[in-house]
């Protein structure tokens, strides 16, 4: 069983806007908007990879787990990368010996410029970096490839079955 990970970037949330405190009986709630990453893991059959373990590694530190968690029933998992550590974040999704290690590029949030444009380029880079060679094939191309391999086997069989004359 092979997995294909589909990533949905949450673009709606802009980077660190102003903090807005709300006070009530000594409880302080502050909120600020951050950009997070949502990923969706499915088996090749289209079945969601539910309750799979997810390990997130920060850039430049491939040995220590930065965050761990599990996917939900729909195979989704989201995390908020530390925007002070730009670079390639690695995410490992694994269940019962099936798994994928994938890279998610995160841009530097402290960079100057329009914050809204940053996630868009991230999304582009994200979708490009996730395509493994076999997923770039359309179903027709895949069918032709598989058919060619099978024809190769049949041709071998016919060649050796031609008899000695």
């Amino acid at each position: 069983m092979r997995l294909r990970l589909r990533f949905t970037w949450l673009l709606a949330l802009a980077l660190t806007s102003g903090a807005a405190p709300a006070l009530a009986h000594g409880v302080t709630v502050e909120h600020r908007k951050v950009s997070s990453v949502e990923l969706e893991a499915r088996f090749e059959t289209g079945e969601p990879m539910a309750n799979a373990q997810v390990l997130v590694y920060a850039p430049g530190n491939p040995t220590d787990v930065w965050q761990e968690g599990t996917t939900n029933d729909q195979g989704r998992f989201s995390f908020t990368p530390d925007s002070s550590q730009p670079g390639s974040w690695e995410v490992m999704v694994r269940q019962a010996g099936h798994g994928v290690l994938t890279t998610i590029p995160v841009a530097d949030s402290t960079a100057e410029g329009d914050p809204a444009s940053t996630p868009a380029t991230e999304a582009e880079a994200g979708s490009n970096s996730l395509i493994s060679p076999s997923t770039t094939l359309s179903p027709v191309q895949r069918g032709i490839t598989i058919g060619s391999v099978i024809w190769g086997f049949i041709g071998t069989a016919l060649f050796f079955a031609r008899g000695k004359r």
Binding site: V149, F153, I154, T156, A157, F160
Partner: peptide
Amino acid sequence: EVPKASLLTA
């Protein structure tokens, strides 16, 4: 036995 083997590989 290559023909048999080849077909079963397919």
